[in-house]
Design a protein around this nucleic acid. Sequence first.
DNA 1: GCAGTGATCATA
DNA 2: ATGATCACTGCC
Length: 193
Amino acid sequence: MRPEHRLLKTDFFARPAPEVAPDLLGKCLVRRTDDEEIVAIISEAEAYEGTEDLACHASKGRTRRTEVMFGPPGRFYVYLIYGMHQMLNVVTNTEDSPSAVLIRAVHLVSGPGRLTRVLAIDGTLNGLPAVPASGLWFEDRGLTVPSTDIELSPRIGVDYAGPIWSAMPWRYTLARDSLPGLTELVKPGGRLS
DNA sequence: GCAGTGATCATA
DNA sequence: ATGATCACTGCC
């Protein structure tokens, strides 16, 4: 990791999910396995905040699955959905407010299920801290996303949470127009690579 | 529009 | 033990 590739540390994640999620847009998700290192620019994220938020798994209480969200921020919350797709979240806020941000899309990959497949993410990462030693972490590579490039909309697939929580505009998407310029920056040979 | 696929959790 | 419920994707 080069000096200007700043690892996002615990304090970045120790805030409410609706603050962390938009700040993650334009940040990099870096995956290192034995073979390779893959860098992906986060282009879509959703906030799941606390026990009040009926769309948040933590609203069901503290169970074996949700245990990670009740722990310290900056750890991965990975779970399997529909028997097929691994979902990648990073735990946010404090232990008083179990919350997480779902990484929904990265540039050139769409959908939170496809991105975990591409990045070789599965449950073995669940509960691990987002640091290089885990093989998966977040970096600030100097890209700044103006707030005008961030689109807000309701979270996907959470109608069961009722009218209030399902309508909450906690899905943050990087506007399509702002993407091409951003990828140039992290390509091999690009200014920031 | 809906099948596929399996962990998880409440109910018993 | 059993069954319902999924923060999804791809093919019809």
